[in-house]
Computed example of a mutant assay.
Amino acid sequence: MRIPTPLRERGIDRAVAWSIPMTTRFRGLTERDGILLRGPEGWAEFSPFWDYDPVESAAWLRAALADATQPRPAAVRSEIPVNVTVPVVAPALAARIARVGGASTAKVKVADPGSDLDQDAERLAAVREALGPGARIRIDANAAWTLEEALAALPVLERAAGGLEYAEQPCASIEDLAALRRALDVPIAADESVRRAEDPLRVARAEAADVLVMKVQPLGGVSRCLELADQAGLPVVVSSALESSVGLSAGLALAAALPELPHACGLATAALLTGDVVDRPLHASAGMIAAQRPVPTEELLERYAAPAQLAERWEIRLQECAAQL
Protein backbone atom coordinates (compact mmCIF):
# COMPACT_ATOMS: atom_id res chain seq x y z
CA MET A 1 0.00 0.00 0.00
CA ARG A 2 1.27 3.45 -0.90
CA ILE A 3 2.05 5.64 2.10
CA PRO A 4 1.01 9.31 1.79
CA THR A 5 3.92 11.73 1.87
CA PRO A 6 2.82 13.49 5.11
CA LEU A 7 2.90 10.11 6.90
CA ARG A 8 6.18 8.99 5.37
CA GLU A 9 7.77 12.27 6.41
CA ARG A 10 6.75 11.52 10.00
CA GLY A 11 8.36 8.09 9.96
CA ILE A 12 5.58 5.75 8.80
CA ASP A 13 7.28 3.06 6.72
CA ARG A 14 4.51 0.50 6.24
CA ALA A 15 0.72 0.39 5.91
CA VAL A 16 -1.37 -2.80 5.82
CA ALA A 17 -5.12 -3.09 5.33
CA TRP A 18 -6.92 -5.81 7.32
CA SER A 19 -10.40 -7.26 7.60
CA ILE A 20 -11.75 -9.66 10.25
CA PRO A 21 -15.31 -11.05 10.56
CA MET A 22 -17.26 -10.36 13.76
CA THR A 23 -18.49 -13.19 15.97
CA THR A 24 -21.98 -11.68 15.86
CA ARG A 25 -23.58 -8.65 14.26
CA PHE A 26 -22.63 -5.59 16.30
CA ARG A 27 -23.54 -1.95 15.64
CA GLY A 28 -24.77 -3.13 12.25
CA LEU A 29 -21.35 -4.59 11.41
CA THR A 30 -20.55 -8.16 10.42
CA GLU A 31 -16.84 -7.52 9.88
CA ARG A 32 -14.29 -4.97 11.06
CA ASP A 33 -11.55 -3.53 8.88
CA GLY A 34 -8.89 -0.85 8.91
CA ILE A 35 -5.23 -0.07 8.36
CA LEU A 36 -2.22 -0.77 10.55
CA LEU A 37 0.61 1.77 10.36
CA ARG A 38 4.20 1.07 11.41
CA GLY A 39 6.36 3.87 12.76
CA PRO A 40 9.37 4.45 15.02
CA GLU A 41 7.40 3.57 18.19
CA GLY A 42 5.69 0.50 16.74
CA TRP A 43 2.41 -0.41 15.09
CA ALA A 44 -0.74 1.70 15.41
CA GLU A 45 -4.27 1.45 14.03
CA PHE A 46 -6.34 3.68 11.75
CA SER A 47 -9.87 2.30 11.47
CA PRO A 48 -12.62 4.94 11.29
CA PHE A 49 -16.07 3.56 10.59
CA TRP A 50 -17.21 4.01 7.03
CA ASP A 51 -19.86 6.58 7.95
CA TYR A 52 -17.11 9.03 8.98
CA ASP A 53 -16.09 11.47 6.23
CA PRO A 54 -12.42 12.44 5.59
CA VAL A 55 -12.62 15.52 7.82
CA GLU A 56 -13.96 13.58 10.80
CA SER A 57 -11.72 10.59 10.06
CA ALA A 58 -8.63 12.80 10.17
CA ALA A 59 -8.77 12.72 13.99
CA TRP A 60 -8.48 8.93 13.80
CA LEU A 61 -5.42 9.30 11.59
CA ARG A 62 -3.84 11.85 13.92
CA ALA A 63 -4.31 9.36 16.75
CA ALA A 64 -2.67 6.54 14.80
CA LEU A 65 0.16 8.77 13.65
CA ALA A 66 0.89 9.92 17.19
CA ASP A 67 0.77 6.38 18.53
CA ALA A 68 3.18 5.11 15.86
CA THR A 69 5.68 7.95 16.18
CA GLN A 70 5.56 9.22 19.79
CA PRO A 71 6.16 7.45 23.11
CA ARG A 72 3.05 6.55 25.06
CA PRO A 73 2.52 8.39 28.37
CA ALA A 74 3.77 6.98 31.63
CA ALA A 75 1.45 4.43 33.21
CA VAL A 76 0.18 4.62 36.79
CA ARG A 77 -1.32 1.10 36.68
CA SER A 78 -0.33 -2.08 34.88
CA GLU A 79 -3.72 -3.80 34.63
CA ILE A 80 -7.01 -2.39 33.47
CA PRO A 81 -10.42 -3.57 34.76
CA VAL A 82 -12.74 -4.17 31.82
CA ASN A 83 -16.40 -4.83 31.18
CA VAL A 84 -17.85 -7.54 29.02
CA THR A 85 -19.95 -6.23 26.12
CA VAL A 86 -23.25 -7.97 25.41
CA PRO A 87 -24.71 -7.36 21.94
CA VAL A 88 -28.38 -7.49 21.01
CA VAL A 89 -28.85 -11.26 21.32
CA ALA A 90 -31.32 -13.65 22.92
CA PRO A 91 -31.27 -13.87 26.75
CA ALA A 92 -29.62 -17.31 26.89
CA LEU A 93 -26.75 -16.19 24.66
CA ALA A 94 -26.49 -12.91 26.55
CA ALA A 95 -25.99 -14.85 29.77
CA ARG A 96 -23.22 -16.95 28.21
CA ILE A 97 -21.46 -13.91 26.76
CA ALA A 98 -21.66 -12.11 30.11
CA ARG A 99 -19.55 -14.80 31.75
CA VAL A 100 -16.71 -14.58 29.20
CA GLY A 101 -13.48 -13.16 30.61
CA GLY A 102 -14.53 -13.11 34.24
CA ALA A 103 -15.65 -9.47 34.28
CA SER A 104 -17.80 -8.15 37.11
CA THR A 105 -19.18 -5.36 34.90
CA ALA A 106 -21.32 -5.82 31.79
CA LYS A 107 -22.35 -3.32 29.13
CA VAL A 108 -25.57 -4.41 27.49
CA LYS A 109 -26.68 -2.98 24.16
CA VAL A 110 -30.29 -1.79 24.03
CA ALA A 111 -32.60 0.24 21.79
CA ASP A 112 -31.57 -1.58 18.65
CA PRO A 113 -34.04 -1.56 15.73
CA GLY A 114 -34.18 -5.35 15.94
CA SER A 115 -35.13 -5.42 19.64
CA ASP A 116 -38.04 -3.95 21.58
CA LEU A 117 -38.13 -2.77 25.20
CA ASP A 118 -39.42 -6.07 26.55
CA GLN A 119 -36.62 -7.96 24.82
CA ASP A 120 -34.06 -5.48 26.16
CA ALA A 121 -35.43 -6.04 29.66
CA GLU A 122 -35.24 -9.81 29.28
CA ARG A 123 -31.64 -9.55 28.10
CA LEU A 124 -30.73 -7.41 31.12
CA ALA A 125 -32.43 -9.78 33.53
CA ALA A 126 -30.50 -12.70 32.04
CA VAL A 127 -27.20 -10.85 32.44
CA ARG A 128 -27.99 -9.99 36.06
CA GLU A 129 -28.82 -13.62 36.80
CA ALA A 130 -25.59 -14.73 35.14
CA LEU A 131 -23.33 -12.27 36.98
CA GLY A 132 -25.05 -12.08 40.35
CA PRO A 133 -26.17 -9.23 42.61
CA GLY A 134 -22.71 -7.74 43.11
CA ALA A 135 -22.02 -7.09 39.43
CA ARG A 136 -22.33 -3.72 37.77
CA ILE A 137 -24.53 -3.46 34.68
CA ARG A 138 -24.56 -0.53 32.30
CA ILE A 139 -26.60 -0.07 29.14
CA ASP A 140 -25.76 1.61 25.83
CA ALA A 141 -28.55 2.98 23.64
CA ASN A 142 -26.27 4.64 21.05
CA ALA A 143 -28.41 7.80 21.08
CA ALA A 144 -31.44 5.91 19.77
CA TRP A 145 -34.13 7.33 22.08
CA THR A 146 -35.97 10.60 22.15
CA LEU A 147 -36.17 12.24 25.57
CA GLU A 148 -39.68 10.92 26.05
CA GLU A 149 -38.68 7.39 25.07
CA ALA A 150 -35.70 7.47 27.43
CA LEU A 151 -37.84 8.72 30.32
CA ALA A 152 -40.16 5.76 29.77
CA ALA A 153 -37.51 3.11 29.06
CA LEU A 154 -34.87 3.73 31.71
CA PRO A 155 -37.00 2.93 34.78
CA VAL A 156 -38.13 -0.31 33.12
CA LEU A 157 -34.57 -1.34 32.26
CA GLU A 158 -33.21 -0.31 35.65
CA ARG A 159 -35.73 -2.61 37.34
CA ALA A 160 -34.96 -5.46 34.96
CA ALA A 161 -31.22 -5.09 35.58
CA GLY A 162 -31.58 -4.87 39.33
CA GLY A 163 -29.90 -1.46 39.19
CA LEU A 164 -27.84 0.31 36.54
CA GLU A 165 -24.32 1.63 36.91
CA TYR A 166 -25.19 4.16 34.22
CA ALA A 167 -26.97 4.63 30.89
CA GLU A 168 -24.64 5.44 28.00
CA GLN A 169 -25.82 8.02 25.47
CA PRO A 170 -29.55 7.38 25.82
CA CYS A 171 -30.38 10.46 23.70
CA ALA A 172 -28.56 12.26 20.90
CA SER A 173 -28.61 15.88 22.05
CA ILE A 174 -26.79 17.35 25.02
CA GLU A 175 -29.94 19.24 25.97
CA ASP A 176 -31.91 15.98 26.19
CA LEU A 177 -29.14 14.30 28.19
CA ALA A 178 -29.18 17.18 30.68
CA ALA A 179 -32.98 17.03 31.00
CA LEU A 180 -32.89 13.26 31.47
CA ARG A 181 -30.19 13.53 34.10
CA ARG A 182 -32.29 16.04 36.04
CA ALA A 183 -35.43 13.90 35.78
CA LEU A 184 -34.09 10.47 36.77
CA ASP A 185 -31.65 9.03 39.29
CA VAL A 186 -29.88 6.82 36.71
CA PRO A 187 -26.38 8.21 36.06
CA ILE A 188 -25.74 9.30 32.47
CA ALA A 189 -22.61 8.62 30.43
CA ALA A 190 -21.83 10.54 27.23
CA ASP A 191 -20.17 8.83 24.27
CA GLU A 192 -21.28 10.21 20.90
CA SER A 193 -21.67 13.66 22.53
CA VAL A 194 -17.92 13.49 23.21
CA ARG A 195 -16.33 11.66 20.29
CA ARG A 196 -18.45 13.15 17.48
CA ALA A 197 -18.70 16.69 18.84
CA GLU A 198 -16.84 19.74 17.61
CA ASP A 199 -16.50 20.67 21.29
CA PRO A 200 -16.03 17.45 23.31
CA LEU A 201 -16.22 19.36 26.60
CA ARG A 202 -19.62 21.00 26.04
CA VAL A 203 -21.40 18.01 27.57
CA ALA A 204 -19.44 18.49 30.79
CA ARG A 205 -20.09 22.24 30.93
CA ALA A 206 -23.80 21.59 30.39
CA GLU A 207 -23.85 19.18 33.34
CA ALA A 208 -25.39 16.64 30.97
CA ALA A 209 -23.35 13.63 32.07
CA ASP A 210 -21.90 11.96 35.13
CA VAL A 211 -19.31 9.99 33.15
CA LEU A 212 -17.42 10.62 29.91
CA VAL A 213 -16.72 7.74 27.54
CA MET A 214 -13.48 8.30 25.64
CA LYS A 215 -12.26 6.47 22.57
CA VAL A 216 -8.68 7.15 21.57
CA GLN A 217 -8.98 7.21 17.80
CA PRO A 218 -11.94 9.57 17.25
CA LEU A 219 -10.63 11.99 19.88
CA GLY A 220 -7.22 12.31 18.25
CA GLY A 221 -4.93 10.19 20.40
CA VAL A 222 -3.93 9.21 23.92
CA SER A 223 -2.38 12.56 24.88
CA ARG A 224 -5.38 14.49 23.57
CA CYS A 225 -7.71 12.29 25.64
CA LEU A 226 -5.66 12.92 28.77
CA GLU A 227 -5.93 16.67 28.18
CA LEU A 228 -9.70 16.48 27.69
CA ALA A 229 -10.16 14.30 30.77
CA ASP A 230 -8.23 16.79 32.89
CA GLN A 231 -10.28 19.72 31.58
CA ALA A 232 -13.63 17.95 31.96
CA GLY A 233 -13.18 17.00 35.60
CA LEU A 234 -15.48 13.97 35.26
CA PRO A 235 -14.80 10.25 35.64
CA VAL A 236 -13.69 8.63 32.39
CA VAL A 237 -14.44 5.23 30.93
CA VAL A 238 -12.06 4.29 28.13
CA SER A 239 -13.83 2.35 25.43
CA SER A 240 -12.90 0.75 22.13
CA ALA A 241 -13.98 1.48 18.59
CA LEU A 242 -14.06 -2.27 17.86
CA GLU A 243 -10.38 -2.27 16.94
CA SER A 244 -7.93 -5.12 16.55
CA SER A 245 -5.64 -5.72 19.51
CA VAL A 246 -3.20 -3.18 18.02
CA GLY A 247 -5.80 -0.44 18.34
CA LEU A 248 -7.07 -1.71 21.69
CA SER A 249 -3.58 -1.39 23.14
CA ALA A 250 -3.76 2.40 22.67
CA GLY A 251 -6.95 2.42 24.74
CA LEU A 252 -5.17 0.41 27.41
CA ALA A 253 -2.34 2.98 27.37
CA LEU A 254 -4.86 5.75 28.02
CA ALA A 255 -6.57 3.82 30.82
CA ALA A 256 -3.19 3.04 32.35
CA ALA A 257 -2.21 6.73 32.35
CA LEU A 258 -5.39 8.28 33.78
CA PRO A 259 -4.88 9.54 37.35
CA GLU A 260 -8.10 7.84 38.48
CA LEU A 261 -10.07 4.97 36.96
CA PRO A 262 -13.24 4.37 39.00
CA HIS A 263 -15.09 2.38 36.33
CA ALA A 264 -14.28 -0.71 34.28
CA CYS A 265 -13.31 0.10 30.71
CA GLY A 266 -14.86 -1.11 27.48
CA LEU A 267 -11.66 -2.57 26.07
CA ALA A 268 -12.46 -6.30 26.03
CA THR A 269 -13.95 -6.17 22.55
CA ALA A 270 -11.32 -8.36 20.87
CA ALA A 271 -13.68 -11.15 21.89
CA LEU A 272 -16.15 -9.80 19.30
CA LEU A 273 -13.72 -10.61 16.47
CA THR A 274 -13.27 -14.11 15.04
CA GLY A 275 -9.52 -13.54 14.75
CA ASP A 276 -6.81 -10.97 15.33
CA VAL A 277 -3.54 -9.71 13.88
CA VAL A 278 -1.49 -10.65 16.96
CA ASP A 279 -0.60 -14.07 18.38
CA ARG A 280 -2.16 -13.35 21.77
CA PRO A 281 -5.25 -11.16 21.38
CA LEU A 282 -6.06 -8.80 24.23
CA HIS A 283 -8.71 -10.91 25.92
CA ALA A 284 -9.76 -10.41 29.53
CA SER A 285 -8.84 -12.75 32.33
CA ALA A 286 -10.57 -12.36 35.70
CA GLY A 287 -12.00 -9.12 34.38
CA MET A 288 -8.60 -7.54 33.72
CA ILE A 289 -6.31 -6.88 30.74
CA ALA A 290 -2.64 -6.01 31.19
CA ALA A 291 -1.50 -2.77 29.57
CA GLN A 292 0.80 -3.83 26.74
CA ARG A 293 1.73 -3.22 23.12
CA PRO A 294 1.34 -6.42 21.07
CA VAL A 295 3.03 -6.75 17.69
CA PRO A 296 1.23 -8.16 14.64
CA THR A 297 2.76 -11.19 12.99
CA GLU A 298 3.41 -11.56 9.28
CA GLU A 299 1.38 -14.76 9.19
CA LEU A 300 -1.69 -13.08 10.66
CA LEU A 301 -1.31 -9.93 8.58
CA GLU A 302 -1.41 -12.19 5.53
CA ARG A 303 -4.32 -14.28 6.85
CA TYR A 304 -6.46 -11.23 7.58
CA ALA A 305 -5.29 -9.05 4.70
CA ALA A 306 -8.16 -7.07 3.25
CA PRO A 307 -9.39 -8.25 -0.16
CA ALA A 308 -7.97 -6.24 -3.06
CA GLN A 309 -11.04 -4.06 -3.61
CA LEU A 310 -11.36 -3.23 0.10
CA ALA A 311 -7.62 -2.56 0.39
CA GLU A 312 -7.91 -0.13 -2.52
CA ARG A 313 -10.75 1.68 -0.76
CA TRP A 314 -8.61 2.00 2.36
CA GLU A 315 -5.64 3.29 0.37
CA ILE A 316 -7.83 6.01 -1.14
CA ARG A 317 -9.26 6.81 2.27
CA LEU A 318 -5.80 7.07 3.80
CA GLN A 319 -4.77 9.53 1.09
CA GLU A 320 -7.92 11.61 1.63
CA CYS A 321 -7.44 11.77 5.38
CA ALA A 322 -3.73 12.52 5.13
CA ALA A 323 -4.67 15.55 3.03
CA GLN A 324 -6.60 16.85 6.05
CA LEU A 325 -3.61 16.84 8.39
Score class of each variant (00 low, 15 high):
Arg2Leu: 10
Pro4Gly: 05
Thr5Asn: 12
Pro6Ser: 11
Pro6Gly: 09
Arg8Phe: 14
Arg8Met: 13
Glu9Leu: 13
Arg10Met: 13
Ile12Val: 14
Ile12His: 06
Arg14Phe: 00
Val16Gly: 06
Val16Phe: 07
Trp18Lys: 13
Thr23Asn: 11
Thr24Leu: 13
Leu29Gln: 14
Thr30Gln: 05
Ile35Gln: 01
Leu36Asp: 01
Leu37Lys: 08
Leu37Met: 05
Trp43Tyr: 09
Ala44Leu: 12
Glu45Asp: 12
Phe49Pro: 04
Pro54Val: 15
Ala58Thr: 04
Ala64Glu: 02
Ala66Asp: 13
Gln70Ser: 14
Gln70Phe: 08
Ala75Pro: 00
Ala75Gly: 00
Ala75Met: 00
Ile80Glu: 04
Val84Leu: 08
Pro87Thr: 05
Ala90Ile: 07
Pro91Gln: 06
Ala92Tyr: 01
Ala94Val: 07
Ala95His: 12
Arg96Ser: 15
Arg96Glu: 15
Ala106Tyr: 02
Pro113Leu: 08
Asp116Cys: 10
Asp118Gly: 15
Glu122Gly: 09
Ala125Met: 03
Ala125Leu: 00
Glu129Lys: 14
Gly134Lys: 01
Ala135Leu: 11
Ala141Cys: 10
Asn142Gly: 02
Thr146His: 11
Thr146Arg: 07
Glu148Ile: 02
Ala150Trp: 02
Ala152Trp: 06
Ala152Phe: 09
Ala153Phe: 01
Ala153Arg: 01
Leu154Pro: 03
Leu154Trp: 03
Ala160Glu: 05
Glu165Asn: 01
Glu165Thr: 11
Tyr166Ile: 04
Pro170Asn: 04
Ala172Arg: 15
Ser173Trp: 06
Glu175Tyr: 01
Asp176Ile: 09
Ala179Lys: 14
Arg182Lys: 15
Leu184Tyr: 11
Ala189Asn: 06
Ser193Met: 09
Val194Asp: 00
Arg196Val: 11
Arg196Gly: 05
Leu201Val: 09
Arg205His: 12
Arg205Gly: 08
Asp210Cys: 12
Asp210Glu: 13
Val211Leu: 12
Leu212Ile: 13
Met214Ala: 02
Met214Phe: 14
Val216Gln: 03
Gln217His: 10
Gln217Ile: 00
Leu219Tyr: 05
Leu219His: 02
Val222Ala: 06
Leu234Gln: 03
Val238Leu: 11
Glu243Val: 05
Ala250Leu: 01
Gly251Leu: 05
Ala253Asn: 06
Ala256Phe: 03
Ala257Glu: 09
Leu273Gln: 07
Asp276Met: 06
Val278Trp: 03
Val278Cys: 13
Pro281Ser: 12
Ser285Cys: 10
Gly287Thr: 10
Ala290Glu: 15
Gln292Trp: 12
Arg293Val: 15
Pro296Ala: 08
Leu300Val: 01
Leu300Cys: 00
Tyr304Phe: 15
Ala305Met: 01
Ala311Leu: 00
Arg313Gly: 11
Glu315Thr: 14
Arg317Ala: 13
Leu318Ala: 10
Leu318Asn: 09
Glu320Gly: 00
Leu325Arg: 10
